[in-house]
Design a protein around this nucleic acid. Sequence first.
DNA 1: CTGTTAGCGCTTTCAG
DNA 2: CTGAAAGCGCTAACAG
Lengths: 348, 348
Amino acid sequence: MARTQSTRPNGRPTIADVAKASGLAPSTISKALNHPPDRCPLTQSTRLKALKAAREMGYKPAWAAQALRRQSTRTIGLLHWSRIPEAAGAWHDILQVLVDQLHQHDYDLQFIPNSERTPLILQQGRFDGIVVAHSIEPDVAHVLAELKLPTVLLNAQSDILEKAKIPQIMPDDRDAAMQLGRYLIGQGHQHIAYVSTHPHLRHFSYFHRHEGLQQAVREAKLKSEVCTFKGPVGTWIDRVLTEHAQVTALVCYNDLDTLPILSALWQRGIKVPEKISVATFNDTPITANTIPPLTTMRVPIEQMAYKAADELLNLLGQPHDRNEQQTLPMLASELILRSSTSPPPNHA
Amino acid sequence: MARTQSTRPNGRPTIADVAKASGLAPSTISKALNHPPDRCPLTQSTRLKALKAAREMGYKPAWAAQALRRQSTRTIGLLHWSRIPEAAGAWHDILQVLVDQLHQHDYDLQFIPNSERTPLILQQGRFDGIVVAHSIEPDVAHVLAELKLPTVLLNAQSDILEKAKIPQIMPDDRDAAMQLGRYLIGQGHQHIAYVSTHPHLRHFSYFHRHEGLQQAVREAKLKSEVCTFKGPVGTWIDRVLTEHAQVTALVCYNDLDTLPILSALWQRGIKVPEKISVATFNDTPITANTIPPLTTMRVPIEQMAYKAADELLNLLGQPHDRNEQQTLPMLASELILRSSTSPPPNHA
DNA sequence: CTGTTAGCGCTTTCAG
DNA sequence: CTGAAAGCGCTAACAG
């Protein structure tokens, strides 16, 4: 660990130091470091000499200098909805895959918190590409569209960006909800409610799932509509149990919604599924461990992440095992049966 | 939006373009942009001229160039344990505060995934400071210690870094567990088990909580020890209920552990709290919505985050409202009573 | 008060 | 096959 030759104020050696110490030129060191062993325009011996010197001095390229010179940061920005990343539940698994895939091509993933400063940060040239996750505000979308950076929409929707031909990866939420609706109707349920504890949902998944449920009801020619309730569970649960007592199945928007809903039913002594069935979306660890364990639609989270990485690397001009598909099909979900659903009470 | 004057390949104007367009020198534009209105070495009129030109051309400083020149990235790295940030539960709230505090001083927070590349990333000079969250591997700690970067340990432990006098912010887990233990013992519990679903916990919180519980048992002069069980709940729960049937209270390591544990008890028809009491740490939304709602210790998460930001800004030489305390006291937790605990069965 | 100059550390032509 | 030189875009020191 001879960290002696150093010129930088912070004490770390520059490429010039390595050059001097090895009796080679800076450019030679650079070549040795940046070209793969095979296609490297250097003699085997000089290459090794350069590498050895660099290693011995503990030389690490200064990132800002590389970025400035290459006009590329090898960093992908993840634009997410909230102040800080939602790495809970489904997003956790998505991010895991995304980070791994990008790492394989020497890209890092950086979260871009949603704040007033977001547009500035995007315009500073800190990113080689962008993944838009969950949703995006119109003003940010405009900035992004002007930037013409390689970008993909991952489980996110934006008229502005879609118009700009940005690839969009999303699950087929309508189909998933329809499958779930058909299953419940097949069990004998005639009145289904679609519920969420979040008061202001604007995500397309919320609407698509509602539509899918409605379609299942329509095709079964039930007499009822799918009624909806949203906001804190205390604001609507008692109405469901009284004014809408014919409802025998609750479909929750997502896994995180279910904890307060199951809790509210339990506190009122309403048995699940004997009195009312409950089902949801996203097959996360939470859903397997609720009381009772939840019937849920497994959304193909990992597949979505692979697709997103694939599309982005493609836009970045990275050679990689391209998933050769012209269009981006929406991905299908799978029904996971657990004990929170059953035929409704008094059913033949 | 006259984006006409542009020289850069990517079409965005440089400071030189702004200079040319405004008839001023690049350095003048730089001064106008980088000095606060008050202490700016420019005439009001030239300052405004510079600012106007920059705004009209949509000029945004290139981040890499600024970083290279200033030898500072205005970015703080968050070193976390897993591949991707754990933004669930308690960490979510911590990060929220941390990001906000740093933003107020124009620092961004960037997650550094734990991988083989972590040491390299640290050495590239991408960060002005580091927050070590949760835990850290020895080799990474060594690299970090050599870097001499402003660093704080946030709910993390590392002999190597503590030896290097890195400030450490952590909750008083021993005290929290002791409070909880005393409460349970006061309720009449004589046999307490300390449990977790995670098989290989090495975090100091895990050990400190155990110690606190033991201390409560010791000071109450109970005849039993605190027995521990860890790993997937299915591997130990039946043993607790048979071989250790005298156990009447389960203290879970943290909030995320409780879902599978409550579920396992429910599946076996064991009533909580009538048959067995359950309590845990971290007062997160999850704990309020379990069946039954959980008695828990509220760890002062936000306070910890404020302290961490404070310490770090201090090390960075940022003038700010310094929380003038010489030592870093460990922070106390508060008991939140809910319905998952009660006196044990057959208790007077 | 403003402009000129000199790099920050690196990579990439382009000569030798 | 290797080295010298230029310059990415910016800011800070120093002249004028």
